[in-house]
């Protein structure tokens, strides 16, 4: 098989993740902290962008998928921890990887469940339904004693490092980018631009929409698992609607449908969150104003090329 640019980029990303992880001991904790959070945000933003940006199915429930992955993987590693605490470190990391994947698959299953009603809904209605799904996931966790209820789970083993974070971020970017950059993948954008025309051109819009939700939710689940095993503590309140909005802001600032744009926006917003930590109460006000102004003067985002589309008239 001839190597192509996509493969080379994937390999380069993975090598860079190894390198970053190798120099981690030389960095101070604060820098590593910011890097890991940036990596997790990249995964969240790039995966949500597949749903909201490329496919045009506006989801406000990404935090719910993140919660599904975070809780599933944490329950697994917590229940294995008596065994793993005495085992060699590499076995712990293998178990962690397995737990992450199970969390991702469970989140993907939730994504499938959300994707199905999305088939009949458009735009703003879908946004509210996904918000509702996300909230249902949160309410269920909050009321399940086995998951720690409202108190949350603590003592989650801190397996997450720069290699896991950026390795998975690289894979997420690769998957979304290669998915969209093919004849098959242009169908996602066709569904966004005009669903009726897409169907008329032989595109199975159902399959595309569900695929976007499943892939998006899978990576959100991985991001949730990484987050849980980094902070070591998760609670349902951390995955509420405002967390979903955080990710939506990244996607919009980066430009819906632009993978490099939203990845850059994820890094930028992570940095801003840290730099503005002393001005916490102003941070969200700035974001809110940014959203409003952006929609009025530059709806394609700061970096993207999202189309300004005229609303189609509804037939009475």
């Amino acid at each position: 098989m001839k190597p192509n640019i996509a493969h080379i980029a994937l390999a380069a990303g993975l090598v860079a993740s190894f390198a970053l992880n190798a120099i981690a001991p030389q960095l101070d904790d604060y820098a590593v902290n910011i890097l890991v959070l940036a990596g997790i945000n990249i995964i969240l933003a790039v995966s949500l962008n597949l749903v909201n940006g490329h496919t045009g199915q506006f989801s406000l429930g990404h935090a719910g998928f993140m919660a599904a992955g975070a809780y599933t993987s944490s329950i697994i590693t917590l229940s294995l921890s008596p065994v793993l605490s005495t085992a060699p470190a590499w076995q712990g990391h293998v178990a962690f990887f397995g737990a992450l994947l199970v969390g991702g698959v469970f989140a993907a299953l939730c994504g499938f469940l959300v994707g199905v009603p999305s088939l009949r809904l458009r735009g703003d209605y879908l946004a509210i339904v996904t918000l509702g799904f996300g909230e249902i996931i949160r309410v269920v966790i909050q009321n399940t004693e086995a998951l720690g209820g409202a108190r949350g789970l603590e003592g989650i083993p801190p397996y997450t490092n720069l290699l896991w974070t950026f390795g998975i971020a690289t894979v997420a970017i690769y998957v979304v980018a290669s998915l969209v950059n093919s004849t098959y993948g242009r169908g996602f954008i066709a569904v966004r631009d005009d669903e009726i025309a897409a169907e008329a051109m032989g595109i199975n819009t159902t399959k595309y929409k569900v695929t976007a939700f499943v892939v998006g939710a899978f990576f959100a689940g991985l991001a949730g698992g990484l987050y849980a095993h980094f902070i070591s503590y998760i609670a349902p309140e951390g995955f509420n609607f405002l967390k979903s909005v955080d990710v939506v802001v990244m996607v919009i600032l980066g430009g819906m449908g632009s993978t490099p744009g939203v990845a850059a926006a994820a890094v930028l917003l992570t940095l801003m969150n840290e730099l503005l930590r002393d001005f916490e109460q102003y941070r969200m006000i700035v974001f809110a104003l940014l959203l409003i102004v952006l929609m009025i003067i530059r709806p394609q985002g700061l970096l993207g090329n999202f189309q300004r589309r005229k609303r189609k008239p509804a037939q009475p």
């Binding site: 045009g56 506006f58 735009g123 703003d124 946004a127 909005v245 939506v248 919009i252 959203l291 409003i292 929609m295 009025i296 709806p299 300004r308 589309r309 005229k310 609303r311």
Partner: peptide, 11 residues
């Protein structure tokens, strides 16, 4: 503009 643009503004 598209409903989505307005929804994002409303958020």
């Amino acid at each position: 503009r598209s409903r989505l643009t307005v929804l994002i503004t409303a958020i």
